[in-house]
Computed example of a mutant assay.
Amino acid sequence: MEFGLSEDQIMLQETVRRFVAEEVPLDLIRKVADGDEAATVKLETDLGVLGLDGLLVTEADGGSGLGVLDAILVQECFGYGIVPARFLSNSVAAYALRDTGSALVNGIATGETRFGIALNDFTSRRDGSGLLIHDDTVAGSTLMAMDVRGATHMLCLANDAIHTGESGAAEPVKTIDRTRAFSKLGLASIDKGIQVRDVDRVFAVACVLMAADTLGAAQCMLDKAVAYAAERQQFGRVIGSFQAVKHLCAEMAAKLEPARALLWHAAHAIDVEDEEALAMAFLAKAHISEVGTFIARTSTEVHGGMGFTDLVGLHYWYKRIGVNRQVMGSPMALRELAARQQGLVA
């Protein structure tokens, strides 16, 4: 049996890929990374026109009613162009709230509701960090919250359940990735009556979306390395003709393609509620994080000294992959989660 994408899925990905190529050039990313508010607002407005945030919202709630596999295809395109989109946060929130009957789900589809997420505490937290809910009050703070700026609601982990609420005091958390903003966040209030118990499955969706972002960024770094090797000349011939450079590019491709298949399988398993879905999601994120790190390093090596210059801009993809490796769990932490899901450890 051939496991591949449908014509609709291929068309969806091609549409988003074309938008990213035409509307989100590296110069725009540079402006966003430098804190240009006008560039950030323009990008958010252009992304809103695509109407992608309602991808995982059911048709009954005004969305597209598509699956997690469709969502990772979109996120891969955003990773390819290192686009600082809220799509990941809104998609995780839409999946988490799909059976709650909350009006927030329709708001995601219409663009009226904009979510940020803070789920990193699921795998690890520093001493003293984490959100605690007692009666109607929320204490504590969570690290590495995403998309806090401009969010109308936050999706957070507290008291071993997922809650929605209004963001409180937020402090910027500096990372090497300047294409996205992370925050140390407290909640000002929580939405009563909205509580998601299936934390594992929601976190799994966040993992595969983050893995898709890394996959896209890694694919772009591979493509850039191949293109550079085909035009850069040394000793009177293009460096791509040298066997050592060929081997580097071939090894990157050989590691990336199986990773894509693993990610597709994990997303499909979530959609069909396969019993191995959670383990596959955690393993996909762990494996792709390591593959992405290898490709980031190797692509930079193919570029030689130019790979370290801001002119080429390769460092934006390199740093995005590096941060993705740790957000939503390191490879070691996620492999432990997968082992627990499979009953291999107590």
Rank of each mutant, 00 (worst) to 15 (best):
E2H: 09
S6L: 11
S6V: 07
I10W: 00
M11W: 04
T15G: 06
V20Q: 14
E22T: 07
E23S: 15
V24W: 01
L26I: 10
I29R: 12
V32C: 13
D34Y: 00
G35Q: 09
A38G: 03
T45E: 08
T45C: 00
L47W: 08
G48S: 12
V49F: 01
V49Y: 03
G51H: 02
G51T: 03
D61K: 09
D61S: 09
S64L: 03
S64Y: 00
V74W: 05
V74I: 15
V74K: 09
C77P: 07
G79N: 02
G81N: 10
A85G: 11
R86Q: 13
L88Q: 10
L88F: 11
A94G: 03
A94M: 01
L97E: 14
T100D: 12
S102K: 05
V105R: 12
N106M: 12
G107M: 09
G107Y: 06
I108F: 08
T110S: 14
G111I: 07
E112L: 14
T113K: 11
F115R: 13
A118C: 11
R126G: 00
R126M: 00
G128Y: 03
S129N: 04
S129G: 06
G130Q: 09
G130S: 05
D135V: 04
A139S: 13
G140A: 08
L143D: 15
A145G: 03
A145E: 04
A145H: 04
M146A: 15
L157G: 03
A158D: 01
A161S: 02
I162S: 06
T164I: 04
G165M: 05
P172G: 01
V173M: 15
K174C: 01
T179Q: 02
L187Y: 09
S189M: 09
I194T: 05
Q195R: 12
V196W: 04
R197N: 13
D198H: 03
V199R: 03
D200E: 12
F203V: 13
V205W: 11
L209A: 12
D213C: 14
G216N: 10
G216D: 11
C220I: 00
D223I: 01
Y228T: 05
Y228R: 01
A229Y: 08
A230H: 06
E231M: 11
R232Q: 12
R232I: 04
R232G: 02
Q233S: 14
Q233R: 14
Q234M: 08
I239F: 00
V245Y: 00
L248D: 10
C249H: 11
C249Y: 09
A250V: 02
M252N: 09
A253V: 02
A254N: 06
E257Y: 01
A261E: 14
L262C: 12
L263F: 08
H268P: 06
D271A: 04
V272I: 15
E275C: 00
A279G: 01
A281N: 12
L283W: 00
L283H: 05
S289G: 09
F294Y: 15
F294Q: 13
E301T: 13
H303F: 14
G305D: 05
D310R: 12
L311E: 15
L314M: 07
L314I: 04
R320V: 02
G322Q: 06
N324G: 01
R325L: 11
R325N: 10
Q326S: 15
P331R: 07
Q342M: 07
A346F: 01
A346G: 05
